[in-house]
């Protein structure tokens, strides 16, 4: 049995199933991070004083650049599929994966700096928010990397069997990846600069 509109677009809605599905998923993610950012606003408003300069702005800025670059390579990975250039697709998808890994390495150094000083999430409201929000964001990065690893590895077979469906899946992965990127673009000023 085939489910209609997995690849082809339903004329009256203009959508394939997966496209709508991933947008709905991102809507729920917006609510998740929305609640966390609201928590930040409420706790910061209620705090007597708020620490500044606890985080390394250069490290954060480097990570911002890394993630924005990874969004570009992600788009290129999808665009190369649309132009039927398999080799380039592989290159860009692997590049995205490597950039994501670099982000996490950087994050690891930031985390261990704090923990070495004995300043974990228990230390203050600011660090509680910092570790929880960036931790959850980091989990989203890991989730994205797992999906990319699948499409670099065993999932790549689909390209031969059903090129359109494979391109769609890379597109949906990309939409998710841009969202993860976008969350960081909010996190960076909120935690590092303000």
């Amino acid at each position: 049995m085939n489910i209609p509109y997995t690849v082809e677009i339903r004329p009256d809605t203009g959508l394939a199933n997966g496209k709508l599905g991933i947008w709905l998923f991102l809507a729920s993610e917006v609510m998740l991070f929305g609640a966390l950012f609201s928590t930040y606003i409420i706790l910061r408003n209620g705090a007597a004083e708020w620490p500044h300069g606890e985080l390394s702005v250069p490290l954060g800025a480097i990570n911002t650049v890394i993630l924005i670059s990874s969004s570009v390579t992600m788009v290129m990975a999808w665009a190369s599929l649309k132009m039927n250039d398999w080799a380039k697709h592989r290159l860009y998808l692997i590049a995205t994966f490597v950039l994501a890994a670099l982000f996490l390495v950087n994050k690891y150094f930031e985390y261990s700096d704090h923990l070495a000083k004995g300043e974990g999430p228990w230390h203050s409201t600011f660090l509680a928010i910092y570790f929880t929000l960036t931790g959850l964001h980091g989990l989203h990065i890991v989730g994205g990397m797992i999906v990319m690893a699948y499409f670099i590895g065993p999932g790549a077979k689909l390209w031969r069997a059903n090129a359109d469906q494979f391109a769609n899946r890379i597109e949906y992965t990309g939409l998710y990846w841009h969202f993860v990127d976008l969350v960081w673009i909010f996190l960076f000023p909120v935690l590092y600069l303000l």
Binding site: M31, A35, W122
Partner: peptide, 25 residues
């Protein structure tokens, strides 16, 4: 369900942090 549950998930994560990581959300 799609839009109202995620804030509870956020709250559950924060409460878990309070219980396991010693935060004071």
């Amino acid at each position: 369900l799609l839009l109202a549950f995620p804030p509870l998930e956020a709250a559950a994560v924060l409460q878990l942090m309070d219980r396991l990581a010693g935060t004071s959300f």
